[in-house]
Design a protein around this nucleic acid. Structure first.
Lengths: 206, 206, 206, 206
DNA sequence: TATGAATGAGCGTTCATTCAT
DNA sequence: AATGAATGAACGCTCATTCAT
């Protein structure tokens, strides 16, 4: 399998187009959790959307919460890999920073939009033990950001402490999932530039 | 009643110190909804924290959802009033913009922290009709922001379209409620300045 | 309240004639557990027999297993008290031994018949922690037996080790609940004498 | 096949050492039913212990209840045969009575311990029709007891009505499965003698 | 107002059984 | 024979809401 094929498979998987039973369930669950919230979504809702009986879900997942966890883990894994590839391919710190913002916006308002919304808004539904597991994966993703931001600061590209800047950007970017309309007048590229403009040190732009 | 007294009452109310039954319920509910989420909080939880029986709640509120709605409306009303006063008192557009950021950060990580978290994270639990009602109040609050940002753009203080900038700032600020630690090394004033630095046009700082 | 009245109340309670909600549930549960076994009895079965909805059961008992435990504890408490009174009232060791057998047969095939069957046949349905609790009460009951049997042996009335004799009698007596018919030709008094004859040292009868 | 070989096969079968699929299932089921009870044992439990999938069980038995019935029938058949042989081999009524007790204790606390416990404690799980079938076989076993007891009474060896004595002994013996410890201080032979002592007419012992 | 027993619809989950492969 | 995904009815339990007191 080529890297491209592997990547495509994963893209499809988080979008639920993959037709394995597991993939179908995850895709249906991500949509429903996004639309209604985790608690307001019943396992019967998920099963109905997949076209099976509710009891059959439990051949694939031990519990409703395991479905939630799997949605989260899949989307983190997929986006971490995409982020790493994009950063590796970008020449120079400024380009890497732009790649981070673009990748994250892509994940929030593009192909993994539903699962990312679940990650943010249904976080409290996970048990502490599962939160810890997911956080472990999430920290790999965050480290990619932190490494680039730290380099950017050394180079004088940004003048805000990396940890704080990362948090502010996380909020700004993740919130876009509540208002950004792909059909609207603003392109993703424009949004990326706007966010990049907020992050980068003013003097560097003069 | 003086403006100060009225303001104090409201402050206390959203913080739950007010000892009217209604105030106690709202305060308990805001804390619990914040801690556990709306669906995972039972009316018995709320009643227990107030010190009454669950059936008694329904003498004050018609339904659990009405409690949620009241928490949201109260916190929006209170913060809108505070925002309006702060903006009115600030001399000049730049000071007004700083006042907006400071007020909103204050509401997110300060006195109305719990209710604001409910507003963001339990939004989907409201019925569409109730969402519309709350949104009506919210738009008053947003108009204060938009008016200042529009003036700021005319003055060349910012160079991002006000609507877009507002959304990005909304995300950046509201997310702080997940990470900002009042006991930590960063003061609120520092955070205000950092956010202001992200908003204001680079060239204006040179 | 006189001792008689107190005793009557308890008799009624284990028989479920008492009309407190708790008493009704316990009585219905004991009958159903006896008839169908604990696992084959649903909470809906119990509720239907009491004339309430299944959800209402959980105002009185935290779980189905708590109902089972309460049935067991109530019947042990009641029978322990009856046993203690009967032994105290009996003059001499031989009479005490007869009283023990009579009391236990009474509990097995008489007024507490259903609950005693539950105690024996649904024992494995209790969690280990609950088994321990019930066993603690049961040991008080058993000690009454052991004290009398030990005295009987000292006096040469029996010649089997008390612990072993107790176990054999427990089996012989408790099994009667599967075959003894109060409407049949054999009176309880005759059965008591028969069992007593099995327990007492042959030479003492010559 | 010699009588010895046939006997060995059956012994092994009820102990589950036989390696036909049917024998393995029966052995696993007897252990599990004994440990957890019939209802708390799932067909997946049984299949897992045998090392097959749960669906495969249904190639050997039409239903879970058929497995239970087969465990009971096998153990009754085996013990009836053993009882008959032992009685036939014993010289005189007193020896025959001792053989009955010894055989039954052996079945309860020895080689067929698990299946015998199932017979007693999971009886209520059988449908009435199946209970009738099993009872038909059981009556053959009981007749062996009754014949000897009737002869013993004619000879003045016992003075309790055979039917009643049989029930009392059934209980005393079957209960031993809850307390008798083969590693403990009491040998099976001693227990046999103790039970025999309870059964036999006092005067006959003087 | 406050209580608390009761409701009843609905939840996540279990599990014996079926059947196409 | 064996597999294992799927079924579907039923389970124990939850909880917002009602209402007689």
């Amino acid at each position: 399998m080529t890297a491209t094929a592997r990547s495509r498979r994963k893209t499809l998987q988080v979008n639920g187009i993959e037709d394995s039973p597991r993939g179908k369930v995850l895709s249906a669950a991500a949509s429903l959790f996004r639309e209604q919230g985790y608690e307001r979504t019943t396992v019967r809702d998920i099963a109905a959307r997949v076209g099976i009986q509710s009891g059959s879900l439990f051949h694939h997942f031990a519990s409703k919460e395991e479905i939630l966890k799997a949605v989260m883990i899949d989307v983190i894994r997929f986006n971490t890999e995409r982020l790493q590839h994009a950063v590796a391919a970008a020449p120079g710190t400024r380009a890497k920073l732009r790649a981070l913002i673009e990748c994250e916006l892509q994940s929030i308002i593009g192909d993994t939009r539903e699962a990312m919304a679940v990650l943010v808004y249904s976080w409290a539904a996970l048990s502490p033990a599962n939160q810890k597991d997911v956080l472990g994966l999430r920290s790999v993703y965050e480290q990619v950001w932190l490494d680039v931001l730290t380099a950017a600061r050394k180079e004088g590209l940004i003048d805000v402490e990396p940890f704080v800047l990362r948090r502010l950007l996380t909020g700004a970017i993740s919130w876009s999932n509540t208002w950004y309309d792909p059909q609207g007048p603003m392109s993703i590229a424009q949004l990326v530039d706007t966010v990049l403009g907020m992050a980068i040190r003013p003097s560097k732009e003069c």
